[in-house]
Design a binder for these strands. Structure first.
Length: 314
DNA sequence: TTCCGACAGTGGGGTCGCAAT
DNA sequence: ATTGCGACCCCACTATCGGAA
């Protein structure tokens, strides 16, 4: 069951609110002999997360399926997907064990789908939550955690923003569990961060030529005292109409306008432009909004800032 | 007839593993 | 030893198409 992007946080007693965890979604299936972890796309991820299973089989019910998010903390003590990135694809148990020591993960369980032969998907969220909390209170979930829920969505939204958490998820209390469905009974509200960047190049649509292909993404940079520093590409949000408009607004240049070096794979196929156009970009709201390589995380194009010049950003 | 919602496809950020160079 | 590519994770958003209004 997946959450739909919401427009405004719902209020009232029909909804509860939870922290949106910046990690990896996992389903845990417990049988009498083993615990199996699967990803959203039903790939087996059991090997990658040994510390989530350690000693668990003795504690857990013999027949259980729970839904949750695996998280790990970054250097600032906040859940951060980037910490999990390295071990996500781990197929080597010894490598996974080393990662488990360096960056121990926690399993945040927020739903229960099956218990002792009973399919719980037809129950309401409220009923499933009661079962989940009783399991936790009885110690039947071992080291797995059940994060709290909140009645006041607006409060939680503001609090998560202040604390640097990813956002919130609001859930309709009367809703059933819908496996594999992106449901409107679950609404997500990730914090997003808006900023202005300078365009220094663009790339044509994948698999097409510069002359024929439409503009697919912009290479953007941040104005700093050290010059225009490359921050990555922005493609999401550029429509066919915008694509042609942007090409008209951009002035071709023979060389890169960025002060730092642009990675080889980003240079290939790129058309450089004069650093004159300012655009608005929305990114992931955590921290600086930058990924590990100093690049924009989950960027989306929000419009041209015709009212601004690069000098305005200095 | 028009409108809306679900879904596939395209764009971004990463990592790993493996085969080819 | 290095490089390229696909398979996975995290996504935002657009375009399309069929059914509801």
């Amino acid at each position: 069951m997946l959450a739909t992007a919401g427009t405004h946080v719902p209020q009232g007693e029909d909804w509860v609110h939870e922290v949106k965890w910046d990690g990896i979604r996992l389903l845990a299936e417990v049988s009498s002999s083993r615990v199996r972890l699967t990803t959203r796309n039903e790939n087996d991820a059991t090997i990658a997360w040994p510390e989530l299973l350690e000693g668990q089989l003795e504690q857990l019910p013999r027949d259980l399926v729970v839904d949750g998010e695996v998280i790990a903390l970054n250097e600032r003590g906040l859940p951060d997907f980037r910490v999990l990135g390295e071990r996500m694809h781990s197929r080597d148990p010894r490598k996974a064990a080393r990662h488990a020591v360096a960056h121990p993960a926690t399993f945040m369980v927020f739903d229960v789908v099956r218990l002792d032969g009973a399919d719980l998907t037809g129950l309401s969220w409220t009923e499933r939550r009661a079962i989940l909390e009783r399991l936790a209170a009885d110690g039947a979930l071992g080291r797995w955690q059940v994060p709290p829920t909140y009645d006041d969505g607006a409060m939680l939204h503001a609090a998560t923003l202040a604390q640097g958490l990813e956002g919130i998820v609001s859930k309709r209390t009367a809703s059933k569990y819908e496996p594999g469905v992106r449901s409107k009974a679950w609404l997500k509200f990730p914090h997003r961060f808006r900023a202005s960047y300078v365009v220094g190049g663009w790339r044509p649509q994948e698999g097409t030529t510069v002359s024929q292909g439409r503009l697919a993404s912009l290479l953007v940079g941040e104005v700093t005292p050290d010059g225009l520093l490359y921050r990555g590409r922005v493609g999401s949000g550029i429509t066919a109409r915008l694509s042609t408009l942007l090409r008209e607004l951009l002035t071709p240049s023979a060389s890169s306008p960025f002060a730092d070096e642009v990675p080889r794979e980003d240079v290939k196929g790129t058309q450089w432009t004069e650093p004159l156009l300012v655009v608005e970009v929305e990114t992931h709201g955590l921290g600086t909004g930058l990924a590990s390589g100093g690049r924009l995380r989950q960027p989306s194009f929000q419009g041209v800032r015709a009212d601004l010049t690069p000098a305005d950003l200095a």
